[in-house]
């Protein structure tokens, strides 16, 4: 969906689904506040949020995951696109993106010494051991929330997870759009002033 367009919603389905919003913005202080105001005003809770600068200087990307119905999410998308410093907001349903989260698990190093069970679990889950210190060991796993949760549940059986953190989602779309080209095209569009013939 382009910044300038009107998002046509075909059906006004009321059922709540998970959506991923990817928002490219100018790197400006206060934008996060601006974005959260839009969700807050409509009583929509943000499930996951990731903000980061992009490969393009001065451009940031917000990746926001929310539960909402289609009608509501499109109105939110339009409001986001309306923000002056937003370059473009894109809406994805399940299956339209590749996404990952990263989780870190801090375990007591002692449990690795009681046989190879923990190590097997780590390997089986495609996780890796990041750091081993005398008193603690850090495991890193990337994946979906389900996958990182599964590893958590398995490790939890040993009763020794000291700390667990999970990042917000990062997502790339399956579309062919190139971010740099998108910005270039934006700069070219002549919609800055009214041209009445």
């Amino acid at each position: 969906m382009k910044k300038k367009g009107i998002y046509q919603f075909k059906s006004s389905k009321k059922e709540s689904k998970e959506y991923t919003l990817s928002v490219l913005t100018e790197n400006k202080a206060g934008l996060l506040n601006h974005l959260t105001i839009i969700f807050n005003r409509r009583k929509i809770n943000i499930d996951s949020l990731n903000v980061s600068t992009t490969e393009i200087k001065g451009v940031s990307r917000f990746t926001i995951v929310v539960q909402a119905n289609k009608e509501k999410i499109i109105k939110i998308l339009n409001q986001i696109n309306k923000l002056i410093d937003v370059l473009g907001a894109f809406l994805y349903e399940e299956g339209e993106t590749y996404y990952q989260e990263i989780a870190l698990y801090k375990l007591s190093t002692k449990i690795f010494l009681k046989g190879d069970n923990v190590e097997k679990i780590v390997r089986k889950n495609g996780a890796k051991i990041l750091i081993i210190e005398e008193d603690h060991t850090i495991i890193q796993k990337t994946g979906t929330k389900l996958e990182t949760q599964k590893l958590y549940n398995e490790l939890e059986k040993f009763g020794s997870i000291l700390e667990f953190v999970r990042s917000g989602r990062v997502a790339v779309s399956k579309s062919k759009r190139k971010t740099k080209n998108f910005i270039k095209e934006l700069e070219k569009i002549k919609s800055n002033k009214l041209n009445i013939k």
């Binding site: 937003v86 934006l186 569009i189 002549k190 919609s191 800055n192 002033k193």
Partner: peptide, 12 residues
């Protein structure tokens, strides 16, 4: 100011 790349006030 005549143009802001993130702001398109007059739709085509």
């Amino acid at each position: 100011c005549e143009k802001i790349r993130s702001y398109h006030p007059y739709p085509i």
